[in-house]
Amino acid sequence: MLLNEFLMLGAVLFCIGVYGVIVRKNAVLVLMSIELILNSVNINLLAFSLRNNSVDGHTFALYVIAVAAAEVGVGLAMVLLMYRNRRSVGLDELSEMKG
């Protein structure tokens, strides 16, 4: 297996995630796109862990998973809050402050 196979898969996922966060208006979908990005990072970390013959990458990946879970929790709480106040989860409506 080539190292770059994994890395490029990671890069593709990353960029799809980036596309997602830019074009998705629904906040829940944006959160899903973020998960894509974070997963690409984990693929990278584990591939490098294998390449460098060290365990640090595994640990790092576990921390990333845990933090990602926390972030999703917070994000969904905010989405709920937003929904409760505005009856909508469209991010475009969050433009009361600008300029």
Binding site: V18, Y19, I22, N26
Partner: peptide
């Protein structure tokens, strides 16, 4: 109504 009109920005950036 899931997407905004930003695909013409998002696509080039992602690519």
């Amino acid at each position: 109504d899931l997407n905004n009109k930003n695909w013409f920005i998002g696509l080039p950036i992602a690519v």
